[in-house]
């Protein structure tokens, strides 16, 4: 500060009277936020309400709060095809997220700790890819996968999801490792551990929170992915839940909204549940990935 505050100055400056009292303001802010939250969550609540209304009401906004009909859920959960879609989604998203986490942890550690030739270039590529969504390479990927005859395989989906998640994962893990003091590994080295042992036994255990957030965030993104799966998967056996839902929406053409609603609810459950369980991890990794340069 260039000017030193002078005693008593605060008294001479005119203290503006606020337009509304702080208490009223707090009430207003809360009321607005409650209204906003209600509007935001409404589609989700409404999907739940549609999913438990009795069979085939057609395109009407009606719902009933007294009778909860779970027939659509039992029908879905006894459908082999639906369960297969869910299983495919689970395999692809867990596999992809796990592979992302392992690769991102190793690479993030290398970028955080070592200076090596080509390192900055690689980091630049990583940062660039973080900004470039997978959409623009979908067509060549589809063509390549067709030529190599690996479309409709878990392998293809897992490596694709893993690669999409890696740049962001590296960024988050790099920031995480940079906050861990080097002395820990140096102590391990003095005790005779190899560098890789030091990484695995000393650094990784400390980095578990970071690893979990990378895994969870990627799991949810993979689970919700729609476009990649839509283009790369065509056999009924291998389709994921979101692609199945899209097909289902087309086939039904407005009929059986209740069954569609029940599938929506089941598909959105893992994402919401994981988010509620690990909010902090999600927020932190999202901010780190987006703004820390």
């Amino acid at each position: 500060m260039a000017v030193t505050p002078i005693e008593g100055l605060a008294k001479t400056t005119t203290i503006r009277k606020p337009l509304i009292s702080p208490r009223l303001e707090l009430v207003l802010v809360n009321a607005l936020l409650i209204a906003l939250c209600a509007a935001v969550i409404f589609p989700v609540i409404y999907a739940v309400l549609v999913s438990v209304r009795p069979d085939k009401l057609g395109p009407t906004m009606a719902f009933s709060l007294d009778t909860w009909f779970f027939g659509h859920y039992t029908r879905l959960l006894s459908s082999d095809r639906f369960l297969r879609y869910i299983l495919n989604s689970a395999i692809n998203s867990i596999g992809g997220a796990a592979l992302t986490t392992v690769c991102a942890a190793m690479a993030g550690y290398a970028f955080a700790r070592f200076r090596f030739r080509g390192g900055n270039l690689m980091l630049g590529i990583v940062l660039g890819l973080m900004m470039l969504p997978g959409l623009t390479n979908l067509i060549p990927l589809y063509k390549l996968a067709s030529d190599l005859e690996i479309r409709d395989t878990y392998f293809l989906m897992i490596i694709t999801y893993a690669a999409y998640g890696i740049p962001f994962g590296i960024w988050v893990m790099k920031n995480f490792f940079e906050s861990i003091p080097r002395e820990l590994e140096e102590a391990a080295a003095v005790d005779g551990a190899t560098p890789f042992q030091g990484f695995l036994r000393v650094v990784v255990p400390i980095a578990v929170p970071g690893l979990i957030s990378v895994f969870l965030l990627n799991f949810v993104y993979n689970w919700n992915d729609f476009l990649t799966a839509l283009l790369l998967l065509s056999s009924t056996e291998m389709k994921t839940a979101t692609v199945g839902l899209f097909d289902f929406q087309n086939q039904l053409a407005g009929n059986e909204s209740e069954l569609l609603a029940a599938s929506c609810v089941i598909i959105m459950l893992p994402g919401i549940a994981l988010f509620l369980a690990a909010r902090r991890a999600f927020f932190q990794s999202m901010v780190e990935g987006a703004v820390k340069g």
Binding site: L36, C37, V40, I41, F42, P43, V44, Y46, A47, V50, V220, W223, N224, D225, F226, T242, L245, F246, Q249, S257, L260, A261, C264, I267, M268, G271, I272, L274, F275, L276, R279, F282
Partner: peptide, 21 residues
């Protein structure tokens, strides 16, 4: 937390829900 929930949903699910509305 509530405002964040839509970000955790798939675009297909979101799209279908908006269609109903």
């Amino acid at each position: 937390t509530i405002i964040f929930i839509p970000w955790m949903l798939s675009e297909v699910v979101s799209g279908i829900m908006f269609l109903w509305i």
